[in-house]
């Protein structure tokens, strides 16, 4: 009788362990910058991953600097373009190695061509019919430059002259480019999947997130198709299935390693060494935390 009980207990444990473990496998690896390194960031507002160089670039908005970290979280260098970087609040990387920034103070898009050490600034107006306040910039491999406009709440597809050629979503909070598509987080707790290279598609497919989100702030899509949502109100990263079912959450409110105060951006590091790692940028803790499975 006792042996039967032990066997049943073991069976139940073996069946349920993978379920419970799936929520706990994200382990915080490091925090950048390391408090001991002496490097301090004033306002951590955006990051981008360069898979060629295997570097994470973090934009310090108020200082107008771009900091480079390696995949171990070590600070490599910083760059301020002679004080001309402005106030970068978003950053994206073109396949050609060119960076695009949103400079909030100038309300402009800025293109950085590193090999030519050249900066080009494209300002927008806040009044009139063409009014726009870019919040985030994203590079889509086929459709080109995308901008999240805080004024209209739309994601705007821009042509080569930076004129608006398409609008997607409504009340948009964040946008990412993944698997050849655009993924747009909306304020109504949904993610809209759009193919911007298809001119006939403007509405896209809506995925309702089955969770009571408080203040969603960022979106990322994993290579496996799961949707990762950062929530500033809950101070967590919530993971959803491709259909929008809540699977599990990462982190909790706090300022120690692996905890969040104001998660602002999430990023999957898609490279040979970085593959599968998840970086979370926290504005109030002024850091990037890296998690691995």
């Amino acid at each position: 009788m006792r042996y039967t009980q032990v066997i049943i207990t073991l069976l139940i444990y073996c069946c349920t362990f993978p379920l419970s473990a799936s929520a706990a496998v994200w382990i915080s690896q490091w925090r950048a910058p390391d408090p001991q390194s002496g490097v301090r960031l004033e306002s951590v507002l955006a990051m981008v991953f360069d898979p060629q160089r295997e570097r994470i670039y973090v934009a310090d908005g108020l200082a107008g600097k771009l900091h480079a970290f390696d995949l171990d979280g070590q600070h490599l260098s910083d760059f301020d373009a002679g004080g001309d970087l402005g106030t970068p609040v978003s950053i994206t990387l073109q396949r050609t190695g060119r960076f695009w920034f949103v400079d909030r103070k100038a309300n402009a898009l800025v293109r950085l061509v590193p090999e030519e050490q050249r900066l080009e600034r494209f300002p927008f107006s806040l009044t009139g019919a063409e009014a726009m306040l870019p919040e985030k910039v994203v590079w889509h491999p086929e459709a080109g430059l995308m901008v999240l406009d805080r004024l209209s709440g739309n994601v705007l597809a821009l042509d080569d002259n930076l004129n608006v050629r398409g609008r997607y979503g409504s009340n948009c909070i964040d946008v990412v480019s993944a698997a050849g598509k655009l993924w747009i987080l909306q304020a109504d707790a949904s993610v809209v999947q759009v193919d911007p290279s298809d001119a006939s598609e403007s509405k896209g497919k809506r995925i309702a997130l089955q969770y009571d989100l408080k203040r969603p702030s960022a979106l990322e899509r994993s290579p496996q198709g799961q949707l990762f949502i950062a929530d500033r109100g809950l101070c967590q990263v919530l993971v959803f299935s491709p259909a929008g079912r809540h699977l599990y959450s990462i982190g909790a409110r706090g300022n120690r390693l692996g905890r969040f105060s104001a998660p602002r951006q999430i990023l999957f590091l898609d490279s040979a060494q970085g593959s599968g790692a998840l970086a979370v940028l926290d504005e109030v803790n002024r850091c990037v935390d890296l998690f691995r499975r």
Binding site: S43, L45, G61, L62, T87, V89, R104, K105, A106, N107, L126, T127, L133, E135, L148, D149, R150, L151, S152, G153, N154, S170, N171, C172, I173, A187
Partner: peptide, 16 residues
């Protein structure tokens, strides 16, 4: 009020 919106955090909520 234009310069106030050109801050890192803006209260414009994208509500069209």
């Amino acid at each position: 009020v234009l310069p106030q919106f050109q801050r890192v955090h803006t209260h414009l909520q994208g509500k069209g």
